[in-house]
Design a protein around this nucleic acid. Structure first.
Lengths: 200, 200
DNA sequence: CATTTATGTCAGCCTTATTGACATATTTCA
DNA sequence: TGAAATATGTCAATAAGGCTGACATAAATG
């Protein structure tokens, strides 16, 4: 889930990359291009991961697109619904921090989801200014349906690989997150079933 | 590089997630929310990876934002420039396949990069309908500068982990890509320095 | 010579983002 | 208590980066 960051609506079309001619003309073509650059970069450490992350994420976030289109939603709706399902009772401010967007961007999307009955807002009991977000049964069902193809993709990818890959991938992705956010992310990602963790 | 899929311009602001109250009220708050759903999902296999991919990718693609803003470019410009640098001599059609966008979306971005002197287009020699894309020295320099913080993030993440993590992460990300595209992606990602590979 | 292909371009539209300004309810603090 | 800060909502204007559809041109192909 969680879409590119970006939007994009759904393209879906996408046959095969670079089907046509050559990936690149021979290096002398590049060399004789006058003003043009020298040899391609020597792929320093990590350059392959830069590109694999792009392609993997591109395909990964496109998984729920068909379903989203059916419901008239975009990837932003998926992101919001996903985190509401995962962290029921989340406040608006927490959602804004997680998604990294402004309230003006969140509002129309949230309004959509509330109006169509996927999310309910309840006034906070401790602080009655807050509007706590909860998924409805309908919202929970849609969230799970949207994430299902992504879980399948992950399971299929792990299936062909050594059993320790999952823990190593998890550790790597976790290390890729900004230092400041890592604690909070771990509370969201590995929260216990009864949702007991306090952030502060 | 390669930004979220999506657009988004740069937000840059982002302090810390969920700094305020509790991640969630206790589960009975969710339970007594009436129409609201049951217990949170039991985190089936891969659910953590779904979320870690979101957070890791979110931070990863934001690395070049400051620099992009300085140059008046967006993440889409970065994606285009990156692949032109990596696969000099690429055709327009190949770029469209890789990025998964339409020519109408690509055109203004490409025009920007050409007008500002980061990319040159040269008529193909074998097929003179094609406009082969090459980076200029300036474009190559900018591409490398944009990717530098991302390589640093990857290197730093791998640094604290076991030495086999890199190969396992690479294998995992590769498996996450759509079946149909995997051959072509491997040609792009692991192309030799002299760019000799033929796609067909 | 007719058709297909690669590319370019115009027009209109959508989603998701932004900033700035302002309103309201509630909590907190002096 | 009363002032200030906080959480949220809303309006307006703007922008990036996507989309579809239609059409044009040049070059290759059959």
């Amino acid at each position: 889930m969680l879409h590119d960051c970006t939007n994009f609506h759904q393209t879906q079309s996408r046959e095969s990359l670079v089907t046509t001619a050559t990936v690149s003309t021979r290096s002398d073509s590049a060399a004789d291009a006058g003003d043009v650059s020298g040899p391609p970069s020597d792929t320093p450490t990590g350059n392959d991961i830069v590109e694999l992350l792009f392609f993997a994420y591109r395909d990964f976030v496109s998984d729920p697109d068909r379903l989203l289109t059916e419901y008239g939603f975009g990837r932003a709706h998926h992101r919001v619904l996903h985190f509401v399902e995962r962290v029921p009772g989340m406040t608006i401010a927490e959602m804004l921090d997680i998604l990294g967007i402004t309230k003006q961007s969140l509002n129309p999307i949230l309004k959509d989801l509330v109006e169509k009955g996927y999310i309910v807002q309840r006034t906070g009991t401790a602080d009655r200014r807050q509007r706590l977000l909860y998924p409805t049964d309908k919202g929970r069902a849609l969230s799970l349906a949207l994430t299902a193809p992504q879980l399948q993709r992950i399971a299929r990818a792990l299936d062909g690989l050594e059993p320790d890959v999952k823990s190593k991938v998890t550790a790597f992705l976790f290390s890729m997150i900004n230092d400041d956010d890592r604690d909070d992310v771990s509370r969201i990602v590995w929260k216990t079933a009864d949702g007991e963790e306090q952030v502060q």
